[in-house]
Amino acid sequence: MNDACFQLKGSAVSIIVLELYHYSVPSFTELLGDKVRQAPQFFQQSPVVISLEKLEETQSLDFASLLEICREFHLQPMALRGVPEHLLASARDCGLALIPANQRNSTELDTRQTEDQPDAQAEVVVKKIVEEKLVRRPSKVITRPVRSGQQVYSEGDLIVMSQVSAGAEVLAEGDIHIYGTLRGRALAGVTGDTNAKIFCQNLSAELIAIAGNFILSDSLQNKCWQEAAYISLEDENLQVRALS
């Protein structure tokens, strides 16, 4: 059982860095407008780190207008990097995270490339996602009752050879099989697998969900309630059928 409601983890995320050389409202607006027009999909709601490491004229900087223009073009400024010391005070006022200057050289992002071969890139991304999904994760087998307040998570299928009590929660990225009474909550396909299914010997659940589509016990009352049943997702609707 895991009682903690979260875990802190380190993670590297690739992100757009907007490296500012000099700043004036008209020229910044024009250039950013051009860039965004070249690949509007690419920039849609993209998180952006604004780097001031190479900023030339550093006497003052109008952070408010800078961020406003970014947001107008649907960018999401999330942090300022390498803010010079005398600008720190005004930088703090704008509410973004401040990160120290980068030691390593960052790679230059060529947005034109994405515009020239958008399909090719999209295909690579799609392929990657599909490959990741095909990796078979091991099933988790639980032999004792899952009690109220307990939560069990399986990265593959989840097999419970006993009951799931009211107030307990079982989650799986794959299918869920319960060889006992399901009184608690069962959520299958939690990472989005719409083919996931839930099987149980006695359906008395508080909640059933597959790939984010859920039903509560109230709507289960006339669907195999307290009987052996399996649940699958069809056209975004959960279907409850008798196991026979």
Partner: peptide, 24 residues
């Protein structure tokens, strides 16, 4: 009954026997 179920879960996970992996 619900509270007893909860305490059974704690016996399963937070007792010395559970932590040492001994018989439950």
């Amino acid at each position: 009954v619900r509270d007893s179920d909860r305490i059974l879960g704690i016996l399963q996970s937070k007792s010395r026997r559970a932590e040492n992996g001994d018989s439950p």
